[in-house]
Design a protein around this nucleic acid. Structure first.
Length: 551
RNA sequence: GCGCCCGUAGCUCAAUCGGAUAGAGCAACAGCCUUCUAAGCUGUAGGUUACUGGUUCGAUUCCAGUCGGGCGUACCA
């Protein structure tokens, strides 16, 4: 890729300097300095060598620099600064020439092939069908959507997966809840179960059943029927919400399939035969050794004969490993922070490679409406659903807010703020920049009608400070995508897009793009705008928000 | 009690294997629209990176301890 040229070129030059100095080759790491005066690329190699060579870092830097052949067409300036940093400044003409390549790449600009040929599995949300998704699911939902995109942009073939369980107590509870609401239609005094699901959706399911079957089930609790009605209706709600968020899973993996094909039984036997599990008090316990950091053994099969969630989870992860993925990503809330370790341990001690499994633990989101905290429990009737959140602040802002911060930080989400002052919403800062670009292009169609881009349009670009800075930010997009994908942190893309918007807004403010008196400059700047717009569109696609052409 | 995570400007958060003067947005203050969208731009102010000690050329980052918050610590998921 062209964008690597400068870095690779500098790396080669430095390595060849090291050769001349008789210093062993090693990895040269370049940073993008925080401040412009420190250049576009910076390396601390001289400081790292100081101890080994027992020489002052600045002298080493000077030795290296003297032996480098600096091509002025690429690097306008190279200098030693601070404690011994080597700073390099990209030459303006070189940057400007990049524009043409970027525009040629088009919607592919930012994609890379570093992971092509590899397969990734991303499993997230995975809520059981006992109720609609609530705001507590939002962060994982939004993170997963963006991370799946990031992985695809670096070449992975991504399988988006949803794991669920439609058996067990929770579903029985849903069946009882639906039945109680059904009975209450005919007999308002009918008792509702203590632990029942109180959400309105349960009433709607009951009303639907009553509408179709009348009193057919009066005093006749067909648990399987009510369970299946509950599941179907609830899953429809969940999928509708996901669709609205722009999330589509490729695989819905039903936990019960692990029972049906005997996987669960085989897993138990294997654990027992390897003495990794034992029976006690009528239950089966998994040994959780203190050396691995565990506190005590855990039950994997209850004395009732029913497995706890850990056992199928272990079997499920082994299944994913066996499916041959090169990368397996799970996204959980911090309430699962301990249990995933147990699952990984189970996978490992049964002899499977757990190193391909990466677990993202996101911290809890604190929702509030002004000063009032918002509860998210499914068993409370004051649930704030993901749908309601999207109704209130829009799907874009919802997606954006959930991923704008690192997953591993506690997120404070003031819904009333996002509602009341949505025009102050950071997502609009980015989208507005894009809408502005579209506005300029529309204007150009009118004012510069009939003109087309010439072969040598680049020469007309004045190349002032605002333009050069904007180009440099645009050019960084591919490596930002790579880094963001490698660390599975979509918020980095948002930080980057923020920088892009800032550069663009400043450029826009100081430079008239469409000027019929200067058609060549206009066309050159239009191309710059197109390149910026391209990165916004591609960036929005990754983080999962829309690219509005008007606002 | 024990384990994991977090603690950075008034608020919400960044900070690229440990790097240069710790950065944005919001809120505050002062400016900028006869010009492609002012949902914008420019400037000012705002900090003992919770605290203490350690490791080193250099620590928000790594280590130990203390304090504060979140989540776990179920034969729930």
């Amino acid at each position: 890729m062209m964008k690597d040229n400068l870095k690779k070129y500098l790396e080669e030059e430095i390595l060849s300097s090291l050769d001349k100095l008789g210093i062993a080759r090693r990895e040269i790491v370049f940073d993008k300095p925080k401040e412009e005066k420190f250049g576009d690329y910076s390396t601390n190699i001289a400081m790292l060598l100081a101890k080994e060579l027992k020489q002052p870092p600045r002298k080493i830097a000077s030795d290296i620099l003297e032996r480098m052949k600096i091509d002025k067409a690429k690097i306008s300036n190279a200098e030693i600064a601070g404690a011994g940093f080597l700073n390099f400044f990209a030459a303006d003409p070189y940057c400007i020439a990049r524009l043409e390549e970027i525009l040629n790449e088009g919607s592919g600009f930012g994609r890379s092939a570093i992971n092509s040929g590899l397969r990734a599995n991303l499993e997230w949300i995975s809520a059981n069908p006992t109720g609609p998704l609530h705001t507590g699911h939002g962060r994982a939902a939004a993170l997963g959507k963006a991370i799946a995109n990031l992985l695809e942009w670096t070449g992975y073939d991504v399988t988006r997966e949803y794991y669920y369980n439609d058996a067990g107590n929770q579903m029985n509870n849903l069946a009882k809840s639906v039945y109680a609401r059904y009975m209450q239609i005919m007999d308002p005094g009918f008792e509702f179960p203590d632990e029942g699901y109180v959400g309105d959706y349960v009433k709607e399911i009951a009303a639907d059943i009553y509408g179709r079957h009348g009193d057919k089930f009066r005093d006749n609790f067909d648990s399987e029927y009510f369970k299946s009605e509950g599941e179907n209706h609830t899953f429809a709600l969940i999928k509708k919400t996901l669709e609205r968020m722009g999330i589509e899973h490729d695989v819905f993996f039903n936990e019960s399939s692990l029972y049906d094909d005997g996987t669960i039984d085989r897993t138990i036997e294997e654990l027992k035969s390897r003495s990794l599990a034992y029976e006690q008090d009528g239950a089966v316990w998994l040994r959780m050794p203190a050396e691995e950091g565990f506190q005590k053994d855990k039950v994997i099969v209850k004395s009732t004969g029913e497995p706890t969630y850990r056992l199928p989870d272990i079997a499920y992860h082994i299944d994913k490993v066996n499916r041959g993925f090169d990368l397996i990503v799970d996204i959980f809330g911090s309430d699962h922070g301990d249990t995933y370790k147990e699952v990984l341990y189970g996978v490992k001690c049964l002899g499977h490679d757990e190193s391909k499994i990466k677990v993202i633990i996101h911290q809890m989101v604190t929702f509030r409406m002004g000063d009032e905290s918002v509860k998210m429990s499914k068993r409370s009737d004051k649930v704030y659903s993901l749908d309601e959140l999207m109704d209130d602040i829009g799907a874009d802002a919802t997606q954006f807010f959930f991923i704008m911060r690192g997953a591993n930080t506690h997120l404070d989400f003031d819904i009333s703020l996002a509602k009341e002052r949505s025009e102050k919403n950071p997502v609009y800062y980015l989208q507005y920049a894009y809408a502005r670009i579209c506005g300029i292009l529309r204007n150009a169609e009118v004012k510069l009608a009939g003109d087309s881009v010439k072969e040598k349009w680049l020469e007309a670009l004045p190349g002032n400070e605002d333009e050069i800075r904007l180009i440099k930010v645009i050019d960084r997009f591919p490596e930002e995508v790579e880094q963001s994908a490698a660390s599975l942190e979509p918020h980095k893309i948002i930080n980057y897009l923020n920088e892009l918007a800032e550069s663009f807004h400043r450029f826009y403010h100081n430079n008239r793009v469409v000027d019929p008196d200067k058609p060549d400059v206009s066309r050159a700047r239009l191309q710059l705008c197109r390149a910026a717009g391209l990165v916004f569109r591609n960036g929005f696609e990754i983080i999962g928000v829309s690219a509005p052409e008007r606002m």
